[in-house]
Every structure is written in C-alpha cells, then in structure tokens.
Design a protein around this nucleic acid. Structure first.
Lengths: 340, 340
DNA sequence: CTGAAAGCGCTAACAA
DNA sequence: TTGTTAGCGCTTTCAG
C-alpha cells in the first residue's frame, strides 16, 4: 500500500480535488500550485489508483479481445500478428487488453460477463460466423464492438481484408500459369471469411470459363492438420489428386497441403502448385517461400482498434472497412502444370 | 447502464449486504432468501460491477503479463504458445491478463505503473536479463511476480526449461553423428537463457573432449534475421563455413540459419546439420521438420501461472522450477557429416 | 483558482 | 440470519 491522493493533498495543504485537477493538467489550477503538487507527487512516487479512478469516471480503459478458441489460436500465427496491431493502437490511446478464455459452448456467458457494466469499455472480436449469435448479445449489452472480418448483419462495425477479391486473384494467377484443374481447400463452413473466399474462387472460375467441379472443393477447417488430412485422404484412396493446383483458404492449410503432397512424393511446385491466403510470417520461412494472398495483418489489427476507438471517443458511427490484399511470391510455390 | 446491486436489494426488500452475500453464496444467508435473491438477479440479468467490487476488496483479479519488446514478440511463435498456457490457468482461477506495451527504454515506468497499487495483483515476466533491473522495481513495489526463465538473483520465483541440459543434449547428439566442428549461434548476450544455453554447449564439448574454438561461437539475437545474417556473412567472406553442424539457441534462429545455408547451395542436413531449441509449432511445418530441443512451452506457461497463484492465494513462498526438455526429430535436420 | 461534498457500486466489520 | 455503517480512492459538480 503506497501513498494515496488524500495523503498528497494533506502534504500539499490543498484538497484532493485540487490534486486531482493538477495531475490531470486541468488549466483551472494555478501554475505554481500545479507545479508544486506535481513535484510532491513525484517525490513520493505517487501513482493514481486506476481502479478507483475508473470507478469514479465510469469507464475502465480496458478493451476485451476475443480470439478464436484455444486450438485455433495456438496454431495460427495470424492471430499473433493481428494482436500486435490491435495492442499497439490500443496502448497508444491508454487502453489495456483483456483476453478472456472462451470456448464455443459458453459464448453467451463469456460475452455477457465480458460486457458487464464497467468491465470493459469495448470489445473486439474475430471470425464472425454466419448469423453470429454474439452480435445479438453484444447489441443487447450496449457495449461498443468491432469485428475482424465482415459480418452479414447490418449495423455492425468491422474491418476485413478483401477475401473474395484475394481468392479471385489466386485462382486467376493459377489459371495464367495454365492450370485448369484448380482445387480449393475451404475453411470451416459457417465462417463468413471461408464463405467469401469460396465465392471468390467460384467467381474467378466462372469469369475464366472454367467449369466448376464439385469434387475439387475440399473440406478444411483452417487448420494445418485438417488440410493435411484432406489431401492425404485423396492421395491414398484414388492415388490421383485430380488437380494440378490447390488454392488453400489460409496459409496454415497451404502448409498442411504441401506436407501431404511431399510425403506422397509430389513436388511443389513442379508437380502441384499451391497458393495460400494470409501472408503470415511463417510462410516466408518455408523453402521455397509460400506463394500467397497477403493481407496487411498488422494493419488489420490497427484498423480494428481505430474503428473501436472512434466509437468510444469520437462517438462516430459504425464503420466498415475493407483493406486490399495482394499476391506475393508468385512463382515460388506456383509453376505451370506438368505436361504429360 | 444496467441494474445495480442497490436496485436488486430494493426489489427484494433486503439490504445490499444481503444481496452481496447471497450472490457470493455466503452460508450465513437463509436458503430461501438466497434463492429468491438469486432468482431476482437472474431475472434482471444482473452482473456485478467488477471494478467496484474489486475496489472494495482491494484487489483487481488482473495479472500483468510482460512479453519481450514488440519486434521479438511478433516474430517468435514461442510466446503465443507460452501465453496460451499462462492464460488458461489464470482464467481457470478467475484472473484476467493485462498486456502492457513495453519498450526497452521505459521499463521503469512500465513496471511502476503496472505494479501501481490496485492495477494488478501480480506480474509475470519473460526473459530475465543478467542482473535484471525490473527485479529491483518489482521487489520495491511489493507486487508478487514470477519470471519465465531463471534469474541470477536469489529470492525470485521462476519457471524455466532446462537450458543448459538441453544445449548439452543437442551438442552431444551432433557429436554422436560424428560432428567435431560444431558451431553455436548464441542468443542476445545479457539474457540469462542465452548464457545458460552457451554454458551447456561449453560443458558438452569439454566432456566430449572436443577443443573449444572461439570462431565457432556466432553472435545472434534470437531472431531469424540475426541468425540468417550471421550465417550469410560467414559464407560470403570466407566461403567456408568452418562447421559441419550448427546448434542454434532457438528455433527461429535455426530457421534463419537454414535459409542462409540453402541460399548458398548447401543442403540441410546432407551438407550441414542444424539443431534448434524450443520446439515451436512452426518447426514442424518445415521440410524436413526441424530437429530441436523441445521445451514444454505450454506447460511452462501453466507453471508460471501456478507459481504466481500460489504466492497470491496460498501465501506460499517463492518457488523455482525447472522443467525437463527433450530432443525431437533426431535425424531430420541432422545427419552424419559429409565425408570428404 | 480552490474546496466541500456527494457519489461511483460494492464489501466487510460490527451490531442487532 | 440480516441490516447499518463505513469506507475503497478517486472525480466532479457546485459553491465560493
């Protein structure tokens, strides 16, 4: 227990109110008094009690940050880079992050205790699902919130990379290389992002005049293991992949796919081309580096934070932002199809 | 603004105190009253105001978590896995995490505002430096704290992997493969972990009767770029590496080293063997998977949290724990030296 | 420019 | 078993 504001006030011969104002640089305090108080505070190493201050102010200066469930989070470097962007902006503005533990089956409870009065000033969420139930809870609670990833609900703030456009780019690039049998490993159905990337794939093929083939749409769940299994199964059963190129809906799945291909003796990109989505650091560590649709991951985090702060501090309306994506490392894990 | 405890009390025709007790399951409250109050609270969707409650209780139920500076954090997947372990345990016990932004030059300020009365109940820190100045600040502040990584100060709680032993294992394994020219890429000098891994390297060579060679100790900083440059420089200047095997003090550096080697046309492990340290997920994604000294990363996080909770809740003394490490993927990026 | 006083919403003696 | 009474440490009207 260290010194309190009351104590400082006593030692300065002024009231608590004056100390409070002086430390907040309120212009109504006489300069000399202010200097004096500040000096005394420094001398005693006074630090205001944030909790009490927040209680009086009716705010917490804490933002709740919801990441996907544990298994995804730990495996996906995307979220670390994202988190870094979020936290950088939040801290610049004096906010701290609260990372609650969430599991799929107690969403309602997590949300409501997170959004409980006074606990957090706002919430940022990731990976909206189609008709995400969290949205209802949050709107009811009245706590401002922003999603990383576009939602299909109106009146919800979000920031997202151009999922559909990115997928389109990837498929187009594979087509340019000469591929006509292009498979997609989709992400967990139910996630808006997975849906949009699939839509980009569809649109590209249609525009390019390539007939859609249901058997080239492979189920994945955004994890490396999922994609690994998806590819492995195909190679084991038929022996033939049926595709000369694979567009994986995220980098982790691209990595899993590549592993499965190599284990089966297939070379990347000589035998099969692979493109990922996200542009995580890890992709650069591979040999060769992963060809992928790069999202500005860190910037996504920053923008999410900004969007929330605008709601909190500037009382601006909700904002929906899409950031551009770009293809990187073209020709690294991509090449023309093997001629027969 | 939702309903308050006073309001619930009024509606139940009891005092705030009784409501408070009822909701805390205090046995002194008559069962019927308790049930009734709980029912009313539920009906109104009452959530206690955590901040106020904590103010009254003189605790925050928040733990400050200090990670290394931003550039390291973002690049090193180790910390995400670690963080997951920490947070899991903390949340099981009702604590939240606060991740402050830290930079090397405002450590004093960060620590003191973090440890300021009431803000956090305890702090967990990573990567102790030799004679770490944070320790002094923390001890002065009186806030309980635990380090991930052993310190050279007495009376400090910490949890660590067996750095020296792990390094010893790695070198021993390379020796078994027949290597005699074993280089080490060390971590940032000043970090206790870097020092201990180097010590293990020394001890192993000495025990194995291999003469120490200063020119086989390469400077690194625990980043991929640092190790990449370290290896690259060597290959460019002399052309000869001077080593048939490399022990990198962490996985990220092993990855950087491998990149530099491959760019120079050297194969891993046929031409040069590489062993890392940590056992991060990413290592498994490489082709071939990285041979490394695996630490129980998630468990390290859990133990750090437990050690702190013991101090907080059980008033147990400080605890120092070392967890075992093990070599994994032997023969993956390691092989006998090339015969000439 | 400064102070007094009234809370913020809850907990915890101490009484009853 | 319950209520009363003080706070927790700070901010913020409202007077002066």
């Amino acid at each position: 227990m260290r010194i309190s504001m009351a104590e400082i006030a006593r030692r300065c011969g002024v009231s608590k109110a004056t100390v409070s104002r002086a430390l907040a640089d309120d212009p109504r305090v006489k300069p000399e008094t202010k200097e004096f108080i500040k000096a005394v505070a420094k001398q005693f190493n006074y630090e205001p009690h944030v909790i009490a201050s927040n209680l009086a102010r009716r705010r917490s200066k804490i933002i709740g940050v919801m990441l996907p469930d544990a298994p995804r989070t730990i495996a996906d470097p995307f979220f670390l880079e994202y988190l870094n962007g979020v936290s950088a902006v939040l801290f610049e503005h004096g906010y701290s992050m609260l990372l609650p533990q969430v599991s799929r089956d107690n969403i309602a409870q997590t949300i409501s205790s997170l959004a409980a009065r006074g606990r957090v000033d706002g919430v940022v969420l990731t990976e909206p699902r189609i008709d995400d139930e969290r949205i209802v809870f949050l709107q009811k609670s009245g706590v401002p919130f922003v999603f990383l990833g576009c939602t299909n609900s109106k009146d919800v703030a979000w920031v997202d990379g151009d999922n559909e456009g990115g997928a389109y780019l990837a498929v187009q690039e594979l087509f340019r290389f000469g591929h006509r049998q292009i498979a997609i490993i989709i992400g967990e159905r139910g996630l808006v992002a997975a849906q949009n990337r699939l839509r980009g794939y569809h649109r590209a093929l249609t525009d390019l005049g390539v007939p859609l083939q249901e058997e080239l749409i492979w189920e994945g769940d955004f994890t490396r293991e999922g994609a690994y299994q998806a590819v492995r199964t195909r190679l084991q059963s038929g022996g033939e992949l049926g595709a000369s190129a694979i567009f994986a809906s995220n980098d982790l799945m691209a990595i899993g796919a590549i592993q499965a291909l190599r284990e089966a003796g297939l070379r990347v990109p000589e035998d099969v081309s692979v493109i990922g989505f996200d542009g995580v650091e890890v992709g650069k560590y591979l040999t060769p580096p992963l060809t992928t649709v790069q999202q500005p991951i860190n910037e996504l985090g920053r923008q999410v934070a900004f969007a929330l702060l605008e709601q909190l501090e500037k009382e601006m309306g909700i904002r929906q932002t899409t950031l551009p994506v770009q293809l990187v490392n073209v020709g690294s894990t991509t090449a023309p199809p093997k001629s027969r």
